[in-house]
Design a protein around this nucleic acid. Structure first.
Length: 292
DNA sequence: AATAGCCCCAACCGCCTACAA
DNA sequence: GTTGTAGGCGGTTGGGGCTAT
């Protein structure tokens, strides 16, 4: 859904000048905003709203610019790597969308929040689990993230195979290879150093207010076995362990299917319950340092 | 083909904190 | 201490597109 395709509405020029406009932005408004920012820069949003000729609140102008018009805003579906990073960062930061967004260049806090509320909450709904519950968070860590890693690993091996078969093709340094992703993703600038977290072999300094129990929990060995992560092992992942892999809806989100796979009641048990621990441990899916 | 229902997401609101004047 | 502004967060809304019937 792009509001960029909208054109001047019939009643736009005829509206009462004293009234603030609301709702979808139109091309003319976008142009006005862009031109004003090109001349005067960002900031002073209330002043901008008055002087630019836009009949919008400063806040609305700011949101429109930051979430949509700013040149470096990335459009389109989140890659598996981005999804994985969101899931991981959310497990550490909680709903600190803007902070999470700093680790995903070009993605906005609103986009990440929408992703979380639509895709992730959807899974929780299907499983009849509260997203704030430990069960759901462990579901994400034990199944969802591994599946994303598996997907990333598959893509990597496929692209490698293609390259091997076509040695004349020059290898692009694309972000759809997990190795490249982990090697190049950089911590956001100007982040306060409060906590160091080793993520994918890179030390990140996360501005985490609370040293919450989730972060501690993430480090627990039964969630992340202690053996070093070997991406080649992703091929050993069960193709569809208790998951239903359909319903992609054009996104990379793997879905859980309550009926066919696992329900909240029958799910492998989580912390404090050995069944789930064993399941993960036996498959040895993670490395304890991989996302920490 | 029509339409009802669902999904996604841009945009909004209200509240909050931080900071400068 | 007060006020105004910017920015962040959580929740919500509404429109457009898609899908199932």
């Amino acid at each position: 859904m792009s509001t960029n395709t909208k054109t001047l509405s019939s009643n736009y020029s005829g509206e009462d000048d004293s009234e603030l406009r609301r709702g979808q932005w139109i091309l003319e408004e976008d142009s006005l905003l862009i031109q004003y920012i090109e001349r005067h820069g960002e900031g002073q949003w209330n002043l901008l709203a008055k002087r630019s000729g836009l009949r919008r609140t400063g806040k609305s102008c700011r949101l429109r610019w930051l979430n949509y018009l700013k040149p470096d805003v990335k459009r389109g579906n989140l890659s598996p790597e981005e999804q994985l990073l969101i899931l991981d960062l959310h497990s550490k930061m909680g709903n600190r969308w803007s902070k999470i967004a700093r680790y995903l260049p070009g993605r906005t806090d609103n986009e990440i929040k929408n992703y979380w509320r639509t895709r992730v909450h959807k899974q929780a709904r299907h499983l009849n689990i509260d997203t704030k519950s430990r069960e759901f968070q462990n579901m994400i860590r034990c199944y969802w993230m591994p599946r994303l890693k598996q997907k990333i690993g598959r893509e990597t091996s496929i692209s490698s195979a293609v390259l091997n078969q076509n040695p004349t093709i020059s290898q692009p340094r694309e972000n759809n290879t997990f190795q490249h992703f982990t090697a190049t993703i950089s911590p956001p600038p100007q982040i306060l150093v409060q906590e160091e977290i080793n993520m994918s072999g890179t030390m990140y300094n996360l501005d985490v207010e609370k040293q919450n129990t989730e972060a501690d929990y993430c480090r627990s060995s039964f969630i992340f076995p202690s053996e070093p992560m070997d991406m080649s092992k992703t091929a050993q992942f069960p193709e569809c362990p208790p998951f239903y892999c359909g319903d992609n809806n054009g996104y990379d989100m793997e879905s859980f299917n309550l009926q066919e796979s696992v329900s909240a009641d029958s799910a492998p048990n989580f912390p404090g319950n050995s069944a789930g621990d064993c399941y993960v441990a036996e498959n040895n899916w993670f490395d304890s340092d991989f996302f920490m």
